[in-house]
Design a protein around this nucleic acid. Structure first.
Length: 479
RNA sequence: GUCCCCGUCGUCUAGAGGCCCAGGACGCUGGCCUUUCAAGCCGGUAACACGGGUUCGAAUCCCGUCGGGGACACCA
């Protein structure tokens, strides 16, 4: 029996949770759950300049909002703790020392400035810079320097050779040693650099499958060299297709605001929809489009993930969000809508109109924010501004007489319900021998200021009895 | 520039040699329904990057070209 699946998501806490990261996390999470494996969350917080506790929290918040739970990681200390790289420095040091002792790594005293200068020259000449190996054979520190201020570099084996691996998504990929160089494993202050910390942790945490974005395929090679040097068996790798912005470039925090998971939350997109959208980038299940978390859990498998990067499609996200607003129980949507109303100064909790509000507006809104906006602009307020064009057309002459009749019937109506209210329209139109539209439009304009709205019964209910009568009276004064 | 990956409708995708003169979805669009707007339903639009092979037969396999993306840090 093969060892149980252990996968991980290893973000660096240097900002909010990125959409690409969220999808990587989601896929790892799904695969682990589906196979009864373990999903580890590890914080790669070794960039001292950019890592912040706030970012750690932001990532945790993002994952929590999406409902992506980790089995081990921050807040869920497991047998492989700690899960923050900055708390694992001793481990890295130990392995780095071992590698030096075995002649597989060495201390390098070249300064960043010198290297940068060399890099510039190389780039000007139109080539890629590779560390020339200045300190490769050095055994003693140069004059005036000591071992403590050296970085540690991996020592590529001499001679020709190549590294290759069979990616679960991309197939076999090979690279020759000559394309690689003696990369920095550890800074002088003992903090590991990505490729080093990543390998040490993946191995020590018994990760069996590393699934990450395709931007990392090239870093797999130096990592593989390290596994080799350490005598460790590397895990399996699966490189997931990238998510591209509308400009077809990798979705990035700098250029694409939609890369932030939480902006979608703020925009009124629900986690179900975001997850649904993101899982369909690079993966599909038959002709299914609206896919629940339960279905993902049942259907998702890395072996079905594609190889081509996908472009962010905001319209589809919005469509999915509406599908989810329609699919989720009304009470659930009401619950989620509350904060959006509150943000507009509307304390609607307990308001009897909420259910009708959601029922009618989710048919014509893409987001919770859309619903809240409409609610604030037309239903949860007193008075309404009439659109002049609409008023001129529907609130004059004979229309006002019909509206007057409606008003009378309304006043006498014992029950203010959608059915009863729609009945009024029918009743008045029949009594006056005119089409229902003739009766409905004046009411609509009087109530909403516009010619478009949900059904009249629903609109009357949403505006409320007292406010409806006031708005109709106001419209009547135009005569 | 070098290396790596990728290439089916505008976009997300189905397609693992014949079931494909290529299916679904978003978008756009025509119609139905209808008290308006939606929603829903029915229909339309639109793609195998190109060129060579292999094969009785290729979107599917091979090669090349072109195109796109990614990586080239003491960032991750």
């Amino acid at each position: 029996m093969p060892p149980a699946l252990r996968v991980r998501f290893a973000p660096s806490p240097t900002g909010y949770l990125h959409i690409g990261g969220a999808r990587t996390a989601l896929m790892n999470f799904l695969q682990a759950r589906r196979q009864g494996g373990t999903f580890v969350l590890r914080m790669e917080d070794t960039d001292q300049g950019r890592s912040t506790p706030e970012s750690v929290q932001a990532i945790l918040d993002g994952l929590n909002w999406l409902g992506i739970d980790w089995d081990e990681g921050p807040g869920k200390e497991g047998p492989y703790a700690p899960y923050f790289q900055m708390q694992r420095l001793d481990t890295y040091r130990k392995h780095a020392d071992q590698l030096i002792a075995e002649g597989k790594a060495y201390r390098c005293y070249c300064t960043k400035e010198d290297l940068d200068a060399q890099r510039q020259v190389a780039e000007k000449a139109g080539g890629a810079f590779k560390y020339p190996g200045t300190c490769r054979e050095r055994t003693e520190p140069p004059a005036g320097r000591n071992a403590a201020d050296a970085v540690i570099r991996f020592k590529m084996p001499a001679g020709d050779g190549s590294v290759s691996f069979t990616d679960k998504a991309l197939g076999t990929i090979t690279k020759t040693h000559s394309d690689l160089d003696d990369w920095v494993m550890m800074r002088a202050d003992g903090i590991p650099v990505y490729n080093f910390g990543c390998v040490i942790d993946d191995h020590l945490m018994d990760i069996t499958l590393v699934a990450r974005g395709q931007e990392h395929v090239n870093s797999t090679f130096p990592q593989l060299m390290l596994y080799q040097a350490l005598g460790w068996t590397p895990p399996d790798f699966a490189h997931l297709p990238l998510i591209l912005g509308p400009d077809r470039e990798k979705l990035s925090k700098r250029k694409h605001p939609e890369a932030d998971v939480m902006v979608h939350k703020r925009n009124g997109v629900m986690p179900e929809a975001l997850l649904n959208f993101v899982i369909r980038l690079g993966w599909s299940h038959g002709n299914d489009e609206v896919i629940s978390r339960e279905q993902m859990l049942e259907w998702f498998d890395f072996s079905d993930v594609g190889t081509t990067s996908g472009v962010w499609n905001p319209e589809k996200l919005l469509w999915l969000n509406q599908q989810w607003m329609k699919q989720l129980p009304v009470e659930t949507v009401v619950e989620r809508l509350l904060p959006f109303l509150e943000a507009k100064g509307i304390q609607a909790k307990g308001d009897p109109r909420l259910e009708t509000l959601v029922r009618t507006l989710r048919e014509r809104s893409n987001t919770l924010e859309d619903i809240a906006t409409t609610a604030a602009n037309v239903y949860f307020r007193s008075g309404i501004t009439l659109d002049e064009k609409a008023a001129t057309k529907h609130l004059s002459g004979e229309s006002l007489n019909l509206l007057r009749k409606v008003r009378e019937t309304l006043t006498a109506l014992p029950e203010w319900s959608v059915e009863a209210l729609d009945g009024v329209v029918k009743q008045v139109s029949e009594a006056s021998s005119v089409g229902m539209g003739k009766v409905a439009q004046p009411i609509r304009v009087a109530l909403t200021g516009n010619t478009t709205s949900p059904g009249i019964g629903e609109t009357l209910v949403l505006v409320g009895r007292d406010e409806s009568l006031l708005r109709i009276d106001a419209a009547l004064t135009r005569g």
